[in-house]
Amino acid sequence: MAEALLEIRELHIGFEVYGGTLKVLNGVDLMVREGEKVGLVGETGCGKTTTAKSTLRILPMPPARISRGEILFRGADILKMGPKEIRRVQGQGISMIFQDPTAALNPVFTIGEQLMDAIRYSNSQEALGRREIRARAIQALKDVALPDPERILECYPIQLSGGMRQRVCIAMAIATEAELLIADEPTTSLDVTIQAQVLRLLGNLVQEKEASTILITHSLGIVREWTDRVYVMYAGGMVEAAKTREIFARPLHPYTQLLMRAVPKLTGEGIAEGIPGRIPDYLNPPPGCRFHPRCPYAMPICAQERPPFFPRGEDHQVACFLYKG
């Protein structure tokens, strides 16, 4: 079994707001092995993006506050790193692709300026020459199949379509040869017709560069097609982790089961079922398992203790007292 590249343990993150602390991450555990494609699924607002941003230390602090936990990248804790080390991780360790490429590109600078700065500062050891940086930028744009890269370098984001902008963002992420790529819902803001294209492109690039990936999404279809292993997240914590094939064949956690049933099927009749209840209030989250108020199988213990991961079979873990012992 391959070595762990990224390992998040018991991560607790809160956001200080007027009136208290939003307890957004409540003991997140996540592991990515080298060369692995990991999916991270969950509802909007369950903490997927917060988890991703915390690995790059780009959460705005304050208001965000990390109260507990560690994020190990190749064994070194990102949360304890000095400025030099963290920049090495940001430069060549982890790259992130944001959900909305329009918001992720600075509107008043050219693509070239932004892409070349990303390349220039990614390598903290040796200073690259201008020509070398430019050549790499052009290569990165070619890698994401953008036509006429030289012209695109001179373009401003406004001159490109949404799909092209996301390709530029992908180019930025791969240009630095990062070992781990975090794609945060990379296709959500794109046209449906473009989504498949961009995903295919991303898949090929990951294959080619042999990078590990975390794909954040709320589409189970994409997860199924794309990933080796899946984490299901609910209200700031992981509820289940398993190989992709396994989790679709045998979902264990009640939330996972309900989530799968909520997907509309082409062959099915009518609208799929939703999950009754609402996502919890992060200011005063329910004690114990955060899913228990909505859970059809809730037991007394669920309201008292937070369930840890219980192993069920090879590489399958579930955070639910139904599977204790």
Binding site: P60, G91, A103, A104, Q114, Y121, S122, C169
Partner: peptide, 19 residues
């Protein structure tokens, strides 16, 4: 503007804060 995504992206790219 400090709250905007591209600042987070630029920070994630190891671009120095002063730049």
């Amino acid at each position: 503007n400090l709250q905007r995504d591209f600042i987070a992206l630029e920070r994630s790219q190891a671009i120095p804060e002063r730049v």
